[in-house]
């Protein structure tokens, strides 16, 4: 029934309609707007990542890809006790997250519900330090905490109290992490708390719930998306932190980011550094994916 000419024509129509479909898709405002950032991510994020993955499979202390892939680096991570720096990083990140949640929840609650326009001032005070380099702020802490520094020097000369400096210890690292990452916990938690409608908590109270019950049954679960995001952000950032353990911790403990840096610089062992990075990325990535699967970002950003 269909002549060859008609068939050809219908194919041409089909391909032109596919082309039209593609054009319609590519010229959507959303696609067009995201093109620059997609290109940037491709070149600036995905490509380096692939290079790192490639290096992690090369034999130790090599500097090109011309070798047979091997898992040697990953084996040496386990054998040469690099897992310790992983554990330190995870442990300190966990402590930081817990401390920050305890500090930030009441503060965020106040800023979201109670302080009124004072909350703007507080936000400003918390944001302005972010314009100063993290290292400079941490050196500020060194001056504050060091023997004969601002704190101990003042205690000694005014009150005659002599005390050992907490500098170059694990608590000093935790202090630095808590200080630096406070805004990263605070603001998401604040967003989470402000998403809890006032009349919903009032209704719970009206239905006979005590303050504690309102917190446990209503506020906490409804603010959970913000809390999870804040905790995740802080955890990931603390895990990859370098400056706190170096500047405030001295050589008290070595965190994973420190090991990675050493492998790439002094160690001149790019494959080992890459393997450590890949492992860190896998651990963090699976954690983030797990948390994000439980969250509805659309809801948090108020699109629903």
């Amino acid at each position: 029934m269909a002549s060859p000419a008609a068939e050809l024509e219908s194919r041409a129509v089909e391909s032109s309609s596919r082309w039209a479909e593609f054009r319609a898709w590519i010229t959507q405002p959303g696609v067009l707007c995201s093109t620059p950032v997609l290109l940037l991510l491709l070149i600036g994020f995905l490509a380096p990542l692939l290079v790192v993955v490639g290096y992690s499979l090369m034999p130790p202390r090599t500097f090109d890809f011309g070798h047979v892939p091997t898992l040697e680096n990953f084996i040496s991570i386990v054998n040469e006790s690099y897992y310790r720096s992983f554990l330190w990083a995870f442990g300190l990140a966990c402590i930081t997250v817990v401390l920050l949640l305890i500090i930030c929840y009441p503060l965020a609650y106040g800023m979201a519900k109670l302080f009124g326009h004072w909350a703007h001032l507080l936000t400003l005070l918390l944001v302005i330090p972010l314009f100063v380099s993290e290292n400079i702020r941490l050196f500020g802490w060194v001056l504050f905490l060091i023997k004969r520094g601002v704190l101990l020097g003042a205690l000694e000369s005014w009150f005659g109290i002599g005390a050992d400096s907490m500098l170059y210890s694990v608590p000093a690292i935790v202090l630095g992490l808590v200080y630096v990452y406070l805004p990263f916990t605070l603001f998401p938690v604040m967003l989470g708390i402000s998403m809890v409608p006032r009349d919903v908590t009032e209704a719970a109270r009206d239905l006979g719930a005590s303050r504690w019950q309102v917190f446990r049954e209503i506020e906490l679960p409804l603010a959970m998306p913000g809390i999870l995001i804040g905790a995740m952000l802080t955890f990931v950032l603390s895990l990859g932190s370098l400056a706190e353990s170096k500047i405030l911790g001295g050589q008290a403990v070595i965190m994973i980011a420190d090991d990675i840096e050493t492998a790439f610089t002094f160690g001149q062992n790019w494959p080992l550094g890459s393997a450590l990075s890949v492992l860190l990325i896998l651990l963090v990535g699976s954690l983030v994916l797990y948390v994000l699967r439980r969250l509805d970002l659309d809801e948090i950003l108020g699109r629903r």
Partner: peptide, 20 residues
């Protein structure tokens, strides 16, 4: 006497159902 200890109950304009 706070709301949770009054023998009264309110149906809110928004209804204030617990979404979770």
């Amino acid at each position: 006497i706070p709301a949770n200890r009054r023998p009264t109950c309110m149906v809110f304009q928004s209804l204030a159902l617990f979404p979770h």
